[in-house]
Computed example of a mutant assay.
Amino acid sequence: MNSVYQRIIGALQTNAIPKVRAIHIMKEGLDSNPNAKFGAIELDDGTIGLTYTKLGGALKVLQDDSLYQQFLGQPVTELAKLYLEPAPWQQVLGSGALNAISQKLLRERGFEYSKAEDTLALLKLTAGDRVGMVGFFPPLIDSLKEQGIPVTVIELKAELARAEENLLVTTDPQALTYCNKILITGTTVINHTLNTLLPLVKDADEVALIGPSVGLLPEVLFELGVTSVGGRVILDGETFLKRWQGGEKWKSSALRYSLHNSQYQ
């Protein structure tokens, strides 16, 4: 059984399992609304866990809400079980449930989120570094190239592979072994590819996992070998959902945060 799933479910008190109040999936403006790529699992206490919906055609499948209506009013652990299933739409909903559970537990602990550092600051860059990226982050690549820091990007589409000055785009994940600073998109947690990537970067100095869907208990990710996380926490669920539905920026309804393993206890 998946270790991420086991650790998060194991952290719940079995006599206080929250229920699912709502599953928010965008149904209109799927191509025009920038927020359509995110969905939200809302618990009965108002806690919200985010997930990324445009993974393997999941958003199109999730337009059929009969697939998940039965989970409303049920313990969130039932929804979380979908994370273990093979279909992308199931993993999308299951990971959102695990994020919601994690955010509830962190709030109960009184955890204080620190405002996010610049993404590249998480890598603690120095001269001589080579950055490996799983996920294409154009602004970050441009910044690294300006600093003269070479970048290796792992890409799924072979037609995008190329090599130019200080930039290698390749379909071969083994290329990460030549990089000492690593940046990984949070979608790798959803589709279960993070566990296959981390052995390739076990000798890296820094491994940062970033994205709005990175809302899991930090210690679970740190135990796997991630050194820092950058995610989002929803501070005001009602305002967030209005902004999300309207395609607006989330502003003060959410906080972009980052955390290094050296800061976490």
Rank of each mutant, 00 (worst) to 15 (best):
D142A: 15
N180L: 10
P212D: 12
T185R: 01
G247I: 00
T126Q: 14
I182G: 02
P199C: 12
R243C: 07
Y257G: 04
F111P: 01
T227F: 03
A127H: 11
L255A: 09
W244H: 15
L62F: 14
Y178Q: 15
E206A: 09
D205R: 14
G57I: 06
N2R: 09
E164C: 05
A58Y: 03
G57A: 10
L216Q: 14
V226H: 00
G186K: 01
I154V: 13
T126P: 03
L55T: 03
Y5A: 06
K251P: 00
D118F: 06
Y5D: 06
V92Y: 07
I17F: 08
V134E: 00
E28M: 08
G237F: 14
I9W: 02
V134I: 11
K54I: 01
V151E: 02
W244L: 11
P18H: 12
G148S: 14
L93M: 09
N191L: 09
A36V: 03
P173G: 11
T227E: 03
L93E: 01
V226F: 00
K181S: 10
L209W: 02
K19C: 10
A121L: 02
R256W: 06
G39W: 01
V189C: 15
M1K: 09
S114M: 06
Q70G: 14
Q263I: 04
S3P: 05
D64F: 13
T170K: 09
K81H: 11
P86Q: 08
H192Q: 15
M26A: 13
R109H: 09
S66H: 13
A158E: 13
Q263K: 09
P150Q: 13
H260L: 06
K104V: 05
D45T: 11
L241W: 10
M1N: 08
